[in-house]
Computed example of a mutant assay.
Amino acid sequence: MRSLRQMLAWADGRHETPGETRTGVCPHRLGRAYTPQVWIGQDRVDALLDDEPVVVEFDGELKYTDQDALVAEKIREDRIRSRGYGFVRLMWADLYDLGLVAAWVRRAIDALPCRS
């Protein structure tokens, strides 16, 4: 019951897919606040950490079966990175390894351009 109450407290109607909803659990469990569905220029991202300019995206496997979609996604990611944002991409299997997610978030933060 405690876990269910916690999950309901974290529920957010801005998540567009079950994968995004499940992805949102990871920052909570890592003690990081985030905002879902944020616009960065012309691009909307699944989530943005509140304390660092790091995007967290959930990718379902279907996205990668269409080469045009894959190329468009790469161009989109490069456009967002050029604005100084780090990127963490998660798939279903990644969501069950919180240590892995934490390491990827840390690596994205460490790779951010120097800020004055």
Rank of each mutant, 00 (worst) to 15 (best):
L100H: 02
D50G: 04
R81N: 05
R107F: 09
V56K: 01
Q37V: 08
I109G: 07
A33I: 08
A47S: 13
Q67K: 10
R22E: 09
F87S: 04
D43S: 15
V105E: 11
T21K: 00
A9W: 06
V54W: 04
D68M: 02
A102R: 11
P27R: 02
E73D: 14
R83L: 15
F58D: 00
T23A: 14
Q67N: 08
F87L: 15
V54R: 01
A111I: 06
T23E: 00
D46G: 10
M91I: 15
I80N: 04
G31S: 06
Q67D: 12
R89G: 02
T23K: 01
Q37L: 04
L48W: 01
Y96K: 13
R81I: 08
R107N: 14
A9C: 05
D78Q: 13
G86Y: 02
A11T: 10
L90V: 06
L30M: 13
Q42G: 13
G13L: 10
E52W: 14
G31V: 00
A72E: 12
Q37A: 06
V88H: 02
D43N: 12
F58M: 07
A11S: 15
E73V: 05
A111E: 13
L8D: 12
Y64Q: 00
L49W: 02
Y34W: 08
R44E: 10
K63D: 06
G84N: 07
D68L: 10
V56F: 11
G84H: 09
Y85F: 15
F58N: 05
D46E: 10
G19L: 00
A47N: 01
